[in-house]
Amino acid sequence: MVTIPVEIQLLFAALLFLMGLIGLLVRRNVIFILMSIEIMFNSAGMVFVIAGSYWAQVDGQVMFIFMLTVTAAEVSVGLALILQMFHHFKTLDADKLSNLKDTN
């Protein structure tokens, strides 16, 4: 039988979200930025599942499924954007994309 207090679980999800946020802020590689966004999405969904488990309701899990859909769409579009970006600029560094217009 599980007797873990719900606060510990929420704290775990918060730590996971924090790690994703740190990765998003620190890394400049676009692939790593997308991965950090994935981590953050995942931890946010985990909060839904924890709440659903706490109240013994199915709604949390349904919300997680919706979040999974959003993540799948986001990843496919994001990776297509990365492909285009690499095709145009020959780099994955997010700092090199700070100009709206080509300067070279």
Binding site: P5, V6, G52, Y54, Q61
Partner: peptide
């Protein structure tokens, strides 16, 4: 401290809720 309920929610209930509510 609030312990979680620990009740297992089967996939069938999730599916019914997803395709009705």
């Amino acid at each position: 401290h609030h312990a979680i309920s620990g009740r297992i929610i089967p996939p069938k209930q999730v599916g019914i809720s997803l395709f009705s509510t």
